[in-house]
């Protein structure tokens, strides 16, 4: 998708500056700062309940952090109030640069698979129905569910729903694709296929991917940037080779599936 608000090419895709978020007494993000460059594939690892999904939601303005800045192509999403018309317009402009794969797919139940994937195209592009048809077919073929075009989400398996949701997330060639647990619910072969699709889209269209995952194999395969959240803090973040070489104890525990280490089972 073409940039709606052109930004200088040296502006990073995402910058989090000292972002914190609590729910009641529970702090899920505690002073998180990081920079994700354009065209990178960043994988955020971490145990359940450490704020990975909250981080994604802060990026698209579904949640407001208690403090800190969330810059998306230089626009501070955290400063935009969706209830104010002027802010909403800017927030929607930022959101149009995202595609998001939700953990449970979040497909619209009363639309067919085809209509689900066509939905963002019909809303945000001037494509003809013929062009939309071709593009939807291409996206569905890429994720291996071309045969299910006319089915409803309730007729699909969990893995198929996830793949359709991924097709919808990349429907209008967004600048940034957010993936919340893309491989959960998928068999290993389909999971690997999805990883290869991410690499191909990254290579051919230059999309930036921010992936929340528990899947260490996926992280090793696709990530050029790795981060690890534990107990609300970003314990390590940087280029994949460096992070793997440093082998932070929390990361080591995660990769070796050890029950003893800095990550506590609550």
């Amino acid at each position: 998708m073409a940039d709606l608000t052109p930004t200088p090419s040296d502006v990073p895709a995402v910058v989090l500056d000292n972002v914190s978020k609590s729910f009641g007494d529970h702090t899920v993000l505690d002073g998180v700062s990081l920079t994700i460059e354009r065209g990178s594939i960043a994988v955020m690892l971490g145990p359940s309940g450490t704020g990975k999904s909250v981080l994604l939601r802060c990026l698209v303005g579904l949640l407001q952090p208690d403090q800190g800045r969330v810059l998306v192509f230089g626009e501070d999403v955290a400063a935009l109030d969706e209830k104010r018309a002027a802010d909403r317009k800017r927030l929607f402009a930022v959101r149009r640069r995202f595609g998001m794969l939700f953990q449970d797919g979040a497909l619209f139940d009363d639309m067919t698979v085809f209509d689900n994937v066509a939905f963002p195209m019909r809303l945000h592009t001037d494509l003809s129905e013929q062009a939309i048809h071709e593009k939807v077919s291409d996206r569905l073929a890429r994720v291996g569910v071309a045969h299910a075009e006319q089915k409803f989400p309730s007729e699909l398996s969990g893995g198929m729903r996830k793949r359709v949701a991924f097709a919808r997330a990349i429907a209008i060639d967004p600048d940034i694709v957010l993936c919340d647990e893309p491989s959960s619910g998928l068999d290993p072969v389909m999971s690997a296929t999805l990883d290869e699709l991410i690499l191909e889209l990254h290579r051919t269209l230059g999309m930036t991917f921010i992936i929340i995952s528990h899947d260490t194999a996926e992280a090793r395969k696709v990530a050029d940037t790795i981060g690890m959240l534990a107990n609300g803090k970003l314990v390590t973040f940087g280029p994949a080779e460096r992070v793997f070489a440093e082998n932070h104890p929390a990361l080591e525990q995660f990769f070796t599936r050890a029950t003893v280490g800095p990550i506590k089972v609550v």
Partner: peptide
């Protein structure tokens, strides 16, 4: 029930992320 189900299943959030009020 329809709107509530959409909310519980994250479809309302999905709409918002697609810049749909």
């Amino acid at each position: 029930a329809r709107i509530g189900t959409m909310k519980v299943r994250g479809q309302i959030d999905a709409l918002a992320v697609m810049s749909v009020d």
